[in-house]
């Protein structure tokens, strides 16, 4: 199975490649990718150099251009696709049908993957994208069980890629408006969920409060993990209860499910975290590469050591086992 690893910076790309990533995904430093955070991503020259480094070491590079083009500004997204092709990317990860059409018409040899942002969660829609845009791989939304993934693979020839580690989105991906509601900016249009410019942490002595767009969304007591700055992982009081009303602040770790995912026909395992450090990338990639190599060689899977790196310091197998709340 192929390990697909995040890289938010050229240094993280090199760390991922050295740690054994089969494939690295990254984005340009603008609104065309869904991790448009300060200090992150690649300018055009860095992207060309990163791809050269990866190829020299036998790894592939996928470029995520997975936000939705703004009316009147489609050229920014078209340029990103064309620049990805000329930089030698092994594939682009796209979500918008118009952009998929542009890529197919103008760069037919550039392999197209369907982003998780497209929220393609059944074989009919996946086959539609394959038929219309010759999509070769789909990144499945994090809302499917292993049995559902197996059912999809039975009905499509499109490769499937699934998330195995990192942050979780509770919504059908590409359709979440919570960040827009609080800040006016969203991952879908601007590439930022809960943009840092709208996040404010405040040490209140015995508690740590986080505000998003002026709204207090959580207060963590001493000993509790620092609160996550998104509305979906906020802690709220309603008439009859107080707690994480949308989603528990836990992180996905499906490491022990890799054999089942392989049996379900999954081609590639994706690690979330382009916003994380090169230290995180190296540790997580090495861990998952060891696990995949063990599986291929018929050895027992190594025990995981990644809990400390999880967002919220707690883990779940998410929807794969349908116990995630």
């Amino acid at each position: 199975m192929e390990i697909v690893c995040p890289a938010g910076t050229p240094a993280a790309l090199r760390a991922a490649v050295k740690a054994g990533a089969h494939t690295v995904y990254c984005g340009f430093n603008d609104e065309t990718n869904a991790r448009n955070f300060p200090g992150l991503n690649f300018d055009r020259a860095e992207m060309r150099e990163g791809i050269r480094f990866a190829h020299d070491h036998g790894s592939k590079v996928l470029i995520a251009i997975n936000t939705f083009p703004r009316a009147g500004a489609e050229g920014i997204w078209h340029d990103a696709v064309s620049d990805a092709a000329s930089a030698g990317a092994d594939a682009v990860i796209l979500a918008d049908p118009g952009l998929l059409a542009f890529a197919m018409q103008n760069h037919p040899d550039l392999r197209r993957h369907l982003s998780v942002q497209a929220a393609a969660a059944n074989s009919d829609v996946i086959n539609f994208y394959a038929r219309c845009f010759d999509v070769k791989r789909v990144v499945l939304p994090r809302v499917l069980s292993v049995a559902e993934i197996a059912a999809i693979n039975d009905q499509t020839k499109v490769e499937t890629e699934v998330f195995v580690f990192g942050g979780l989105c509770v919504m059908a991906e590409g359709r979440c408006s919570l960040s827009s509601y609080a800040t006016g900016l969203s991952p879908n249009m601007n590439g930022v969920c809960s943009p840092a410019s709208h996040v404010d942490y405040h040490d209140e002595g015995d508690t740590l409060a986080v505000r998003l767009g002026g709204y207090t969304i959580h207060r963590a007591k001493p000993g509790e993990p620092a609160p996550y700055p998104t509305l979906c992982k906020g802690c709220f009081a309603t008439q009859d209860q107080k707690g994480y009303l949308f989603e528990d602040p836990v992180s996905l770790n499906a490491e022990q499910l890799i054999p089942q995912l392989k049996k379900a026909g999954v081609t590639a395992l994706k690690i979330e975290g382009r916003q994380r450090s090169r230290s995180y990338v190296a540790q997580v990639v090495r861990n998952f590469r060891d696990a995949v190599d063990a599986l291929e060689e018929g050895r027992e899977l190594p025990a995981g050591m990644l809990a400390r790196l999880s967002e919220g310091q707690a883990e779940t197998t998410g929807a794969y086992r349908k116990i995630w709340r």
Binding site: T9, A15, F37, P38, G39, A226, P229, S277, S279, E311
Partner: peptide, 28 residues
């Protein structure tokens, strides 16, 4: 590069305040 900033932050070994965007840019 010995530590991951997010991991230190979530475990509360690290505290950030003020301009979160500037902190992220510096970290990255």
């Amino acid at each position: 590069g010995a530590f991951d900033g997010d991991a230190l932050f979530f475990s509360r070994d690290l505290l950030i305040e003020g301009d979160t965007g500037a902190v992220l840019a510096l970290r990255n």
